[in-house]
Design a protein around this nucleic acid. Sequence first.
DNA 1: CGCGTTTCTCAGGGAATTCACAGACTTGCG
DNA 2: CGCAAGTCTGTGAATTCCCTGAGAAACGCG
Lengths: 247, 247
Amino acid sequence: MTTTTSPQGRTELLRPDGSPVRVLVVDDEQSITELLSMALRYEGWRIRSAGDGQGAVRAAREFRPDAVVLDMMLPDMDGLAVLGRLRRELPDVPVLFLTAKDAVEDRIAGLTAGGDDYVTKPFSLEEVVARLRGLIRRSGAADRRSEPVLVVGDLTLDEDCHEVARGGDHIHLTATEFELLRFLMRNPRRVLSKAQILDRVWSYDFGGQANVVELYISYLRRKIDAGREPMIHTRRGAGYLIKPAVS
Amino acid sequence: MTTTTSPQGRTELLRPDGSPVRVLVVDDEQSITELLSMALRYEGWRIRSAGDGQGAVRAAREFRPDAVVLDMMLPDMDGLAVLGRLRRELPDVPVLFLTAKDAVEDRIAGLTAGGDDYVTKPFSLEEVVARLRGLIRRSGAADRRSEPVLVVGDLTLDEDCHEVARGGDHIHLTATEFELLRFLMRNPRRVLSKAQILDRVWSYDFGGQANVVELYISYLRRKIDAGREPMIHTRRGAGYLIKPAVS
DNA sequence: CGCGTTTCTCAGGGAATTCACAGACTTGCG
DNA sequence: CGCAAGTCTGTGAATTCCCTGAGAAACGCG
């Protein structure tokens, strides 16, 4: 796969032949498949969705996806059975498991040994997209040149090892801070509204106050902009944006 | 999509084949659909409107719009249900949600996640048009060349990062000032009456004095024309216009 | 289980923004 | 020249928006 720059200025993954990456989404809750389809389409990927094991296998056969998002709780088949059938259709395709938080983690842990990955419900879209990008990038067909490091000015964020540094100084971020910064850095120089940020960085069932965003922006500023030329800017009444400090 | 310049000097979005962009407007208040239809037609777009979920789905099927404006409060169906049905008809079409101001915190969750956007009622037409243009521009079908930067003389306005500069000097504007300037710059060399400006830049339920326009023009002049060749001109008894300073 | 870390709510304070009002000024015209 | 309509802008009040400290609750790890 190679990367190109979309009209939005974001980089998207492509297959070696230049066609878009194909992702199959399998979940029985339609609201989830819709949410995921929408978000993944926006990444520039081609999406097919299925609501049960039967449909998943059928879709796998004819759609030939490059990656699969698979809920482990399906109505008609055991998750493992579905996985087995999928594997027979698509031996080398990476799978991102969706699982309930309290589900037996060791069983999943065993499954991910082959290079697959998983996220727990309720997830944030940034998380799903990031893991999927990682899986696709690392899967055999992926172009190795596609970079896992985001750079804006002297600020760098490594999606692989979850490390952030500004001007050489390493910066420790919590999980939420990291995701927020990643979202900002994947959309440099663009104003992002608090609603957009909330929808993307917080999990889909978050029902809290929108001012967590303000709070976490404030945390990020303390760690990233402290004593330096600020990179995170407020556009009053519109949102926030990150851009290189031109000074 | 490509951009062309109309005889009046405005740039409009077009589809790749040169036909006008199609937008579906869904709202149960007829006054709103009429207001929006009128404003969006003026952008050179082809408009269809629907007053309920049923009609929206039907219209989506046969009209095949490039974007949808969707009120989340419809009489016959839940907004999310309508959204789901629309998504099945038009998987890749961006949606601009209309929502009551106090409902924002409620359940916008996930709505803007796919690159969609929303505005709160009461909205200003400039806001709706601008967001819609943004959505259409960023949607897959958009022409890569369509620029998010307005230029008049040495004055530039970037709609993505909400930045304005004249002759290289960065200028800070408030939200209202920004929208007013955007409206002026999208209609360069054309006289805009105070009534037009009020209808376009202020929200449709604004009940104040008409001289806010004068006030904000005065603010803009202080920031943009201060100590330079003026670009904002008064046509006494007619309105205002912006044009490059020829000096 | 216990402790440190992380996430999030709440509320106060401060600053920016919006807008009304009123008086000064400008322009066109009789 | 003087008037009237139209326009400009200083002042100030109300409001909105944003930032951040403090602390409660949830989490994670040994």
